[in-house]
Design a protein around this nucleic acid. Structure first.
Ligand code: SF4
Ligand code: SF4
Lengths: 136, 136
DNA sequence: CCTAAATCAGACTGATTCGTTCTGATTTGG
DNA sequence: CCAAATCAGAACGAATCAGTCTGATTTAGG
């Protein structure tokens, strides 16, 4: 019930990047300096976030990152899913993955769908704009 | 963002135990047979659940388990916390654990408290009685 | 057109945690 | 008193995660 450190750092990185919304080019090293995270870690994060379609990268001298979408259209759920994969509390909730041998006789399986939806909704209700605010 | 298999199995085990609410003695092997889980796994689960105060165990010949509280007073949050420890999405939300080096300059830290509370509330709203129902 | 610098992208290693299994201590019934 | 049955805790192996490193690609300037 604890999300991975990478997802946590990804949120911090995205929050830092949101403040440079207007600037087209922001280097990963600059974000690392602002957040205090190790540089290689930020590099891996931007790779994942770019592959997920949340960031747009430009290579070459003077290259950098920029948000692929407005900050208001990015939620916590998007970031978490980009780093940790689909949000599925149990293996039976995941789409079509029949990894659990108890699917036939499991009585609690139908209820997980409701809980999963509620949890995902709690994350989706937090847009990136709110996290970018410095004050509480 | 996926809870451990142990927590999942713990919920299944508790759900199975809830049907024997009136019976004072239910062996772990019997629960394993009903749920289809490996016997040693159930043994470890009942140990954890007993240590957490959700089950009451009786040793010796003919011993077994019984619910320490009424099924209506046990929620998903209780079971998850018993197996996985406190529900804390990030390390800074956990009580007093100063494991993260970014606490000083992290701008998103205040917001996690709200999200964490919402998530915990979603789990606490599901009592064990609802999971014990066989039909959806 | 070529060189060179700066950047992202992917692959590798070590460590931690998770999941499972096994053996031992304790208690009741005959 | 003996024996069976049960819970409780400790030990092992596997998988995933976090972190680091080196290489491919692209742009700017000479
Ligand atoms: S079928 Fe039951 S035991 Fe298996 S993953 Fe789903 S809820 Fe858990
Ligand atoms: S202080 Fe920031 S980076 Fe550290 S655990 Fe909390 S939210 Fe994550």
């Amino acid at each position: 019930m604890r999300l991975s450190s990478m997802a946590d750092y990804a949120v911090v990185t995205m929050s830092a990047a949101a403040r440079h919304c207007g600037m087209v080019r922001v280097s990963a090293a600059q974000l690392a300096q602002e957040t205090g995270l190790p540089v290689p870690t930020v590099q891996k994060l931007v790779s994942l976030l770019t592959a997920a379609g949340l960031l747009r990268s430009s290579r070459g001298t003077g290259g950098g990152l920029k948000l692929a979408r407005p900050a208001a259209a990015i939620s916590l759920a998007d970031i978490v899913e980009a780093v940790e994969g689909p949000i599925a509390l149990t293996s039976c909730v995941d789409n079509g993955k029949h990894d659990c041998a108890l699917e036939g006789s499991c009585t609690v399986r139908p209820h997980w769908g409701v809980v999963n939806a509620a949890m995902r909704g709690a994350l989706a209700d937090v847009p990136l704009t709110r996290l970018a605010e410095t004050a509480a």
